[in-house]
């Protein structure tokens, strides 16, 4: 019995087995409810949105994972699924939609373009939506297969189930834009957006 009490230390409080058990129970109930009834907000822009639709349609049917209700209004949504490339012109829109979503909220970045800019390393494209909003799960692929998106959703379930209501660190603080109007420091954005791989060589025309 003793070793159990010692391993259960709850956020710096005195070890208390019953309290720990109770908190586990509450976490389990809350997190399971959250994870298994996610309301996705499909921010579908390009090709990935077609695969997103295929995931929602009868063959893959992500309603099986508790995502039956697609929330087309950000005010009634839990998870923002950015499906497709995000040009600069759309950046303030996704930021506003993210700000309008109530806590707790998660973001899935679906596809190569949303995650890194993909093949569009040019003047028009945001090089990864993580320069605009915080991202929880990145789903690779161009576009990801529906199975890939479902795997991403299951990863998000896992992440949600690992959270605890009783952590004293502010777990999901809003991440507002700073006084420069950016989410990250400029140097970090430049670093994230640097060309890599093959696109390094693609400056030259002719």
């Amino acid at each position: 019995m003793k070793h159990v009490i010692e391993t259960k230390t709850v956020s710096g409080q005195s070890p208390n087995y019953l309290l720990a058990k109770f908190q586990d129970l509450v976490d389990w109930a809350v997190n399971s409810s959250r994870a298994n009834s996610l309301w996705p907000m499909p921010f579908g822009t390009a090709c990935c949105a077609i695969e997103f639709m295929a995931t929602a349609a009868s063959r893959y049917d992500f309603a099986r994972f508790g995502m039956e209700r697609q929330a087309f209004s950000p005010r009634q949504a839990d998870v923002l699924i950015c499906a497709g490339r995000l040009p600069f012109k759309l950046a303030p829109v996704i930021r506003r939609i993210y700000d309008q979503m109530p806590q707790p909220k998660w973001v899935i970045s679906m596809g190569a373009c949303a995650s890194t800019g993909g093949i569009f390393d040019n003047y028009a494209m945001v090089q990864g939506i993580d320069t605009i909003v915080p991202v929880d799960v990145y789903v690779p692929g161009c576009p990801p297969r529906p199975e890939g998106l479902l795997y991403g959703v299951l990863l998000l379930h896992k992440k949600i189930k690992g959270e605890s209501l009783f952590d004293h660190v502010p777990r999901r603080e809003e991440q507002p834009l700073d006084d420069r109007g950016l989410r990250l420091p400029p140097g970090e954005i430049d670093e994230i957006s640097e060309p890599f791989g093959n696109s390094v060589h693609q400056f030259r025309s002719a």
């Binding site: 600069f88 420069r180 950016l182 430049d190």
Partner: peptide, 10 residues
């Protein structure tokens, strides 16, 4: 720069 582009877009 990318940061400036993001700033102007936002």
């Amino acid at each position: 720069s990318r940061a400036e582009q993001v700033r102007q877009a936002l």
